[in-house]
Computed example of a mutant assay.
Amino acid sequence: MKRVLIISQHFYPEIGSHANRIKHLFLQLKKKKYDVTVFTAEPSYPNKKIYSNADFWDDESLNRENNIMRINISSRKYSNSIINRLLYYIEIALKLIFLIIKDKKRYDYIFVTSPPIFTGLVGLFAKYRYKTKLVLDIRDLWPESLKGVEVFNYPIILKFFGTLEKTLYKKSDKIVINSLGFQDHIQNKAGILKSKIIFIPNGAVEEEIALKNREKNDTKKIIYAGNLGLAQNTLLINQLVPLLDEQGIHLTIIGYGVNKKQLIHSIKDYKNVTIINPVTRKEVFKIISEHDLGLVTLKEKDVFKTVLPGKIIDYMTCGVPIVGVVDGYAKEMIEKERVGIVSNTPDPKKIVSIIKTLLEDKKLCKEMSERAQQVILKNFNWDVNINKLVEYMK
């Protein structure tokens, strides 16, 4: 039986696409009869206290798992300060390295996921410590995304991070990407062959694909589910709320992230908004499925043209048509698969017009809903896509 060590800052029971991706990877490799160990941090995203709620620990098989090793971290929640967050990342990386030094096992493969890039460096350390092969999972381009959020402007440090990024690409034995938009950047940055890269997107397992049986009534409901962070256009959501209110359209936000508090404060007087604190993935899917449309936004920066936000996959899994304010790869995917409509401008009035068009065309929405779940089964199915990694590991 081959042994795999997964190194990830986030893991079950944390919310968010990072933890969910690694949870699925762990379970899929176990199903394929690999001996899998996880080195991770204790759950803390978006803050530690929510995981005192037993509802988040809803997978008994994982609760009983002996091969999940967690490090303690001193920070209790994510900081708005980039400097503080970098220190937080460094603390986790150093403690993971110490865990690796103490570990006496041997592994056939190290699977490490980045960003943060410091976790990637832990994986590189592990490659040489265990004298084995390194699979590098890239979920976001870093430090490119750091430049995109425009809150960290230290050219010398960014150049240093860029050198680390290039080193990771070169030294890894295989690179896994969750967005095809990353492929050209990685090849050009490190001068590597396309054959070194495997595309395994975020996805769902078949039992997560909900049949949308909600009876239609006169309520018009749109949802935003996910991170309200530095990359997402939360200002646009703020601008949309009064316009949606005028049209009698209800917005549900299941959100977390550094901009959540500010957004909630700015829209607190509107009656057409429901704010829901973070809940389990199962509950999120249930709530999403009760809505007519799903909203996704990203800021207008080149680096964000390469990403495929996890909430797009979640909306499609639930059979909910997408209203997108995105560009690049995400826009191409939504339009190619005909699972929603993308605005070519962040103009709130244009976006409300798209929302109204979709809400009034029940036939089109039904077609988009059915097509979305078919696309998930075909292209974003963990049970199928894991075979790309297993084929390499053979």
Rank of each mutant, 00 (worst) to 15 (best):
Q262K: 15
I100N: 00
Q239V: 01
K301Y: 13
E370M: 15
L377H: 10
L244E: 05
E283K: 15
V342G: 11
A372G: 12
E150F: 08
W57M: 09
Y51Q: 03
N67C: 02
K260P: 09
Y107W: 05
A126V: 00
V258E: 07
K378V: 06
C318M: 06
L87I: 08
H24S: 12
D245F: 12
P13A: 11
K221A: 03
Y270Q: 03
Y78S: 10
G203S: 09
A210W: 04
I209V: 15
S17R: 06
E165W: 07
T306Q: 09
W382L: 01
P201S: 14
A54T: 13
I276H: 09
A225D: 03
I386W: 04
F98G: 05
I237Y: 02
F125S: 00
K95S: 05
A330R: 00
I68Y: 07
V273Y: 06
K31A: 11
T37E: 00
L87D: 05
V339F: 10
E91T: 01
I254F: 10
I157R: 03
E300Y: 15
I287F: 11
L263P: 11
T357N: 14
L377N: 12
T234P: 08
Y34L: 01
I50T: 07
I198R: 04
E283H: 15
M368S: 03
G248F: 06
K349M: 08
D269S: 12
I198Y: 02
P309S: 12
S52Y: 14
A330F: 01
M333D: 02
L243K: 15
V149G: 09
V36R: 00
N84M: 07
F160V: 06
G162L: 04
N238G: 09
R338M: 13
V205C: 12
Q373E: 10
F160W: 07
Y88Q: 12
A372H: 11
T37P: 00
K366M: 11
E65G: 01
A41E: 05
M393G: 09
I287G: 10
V176K: 03
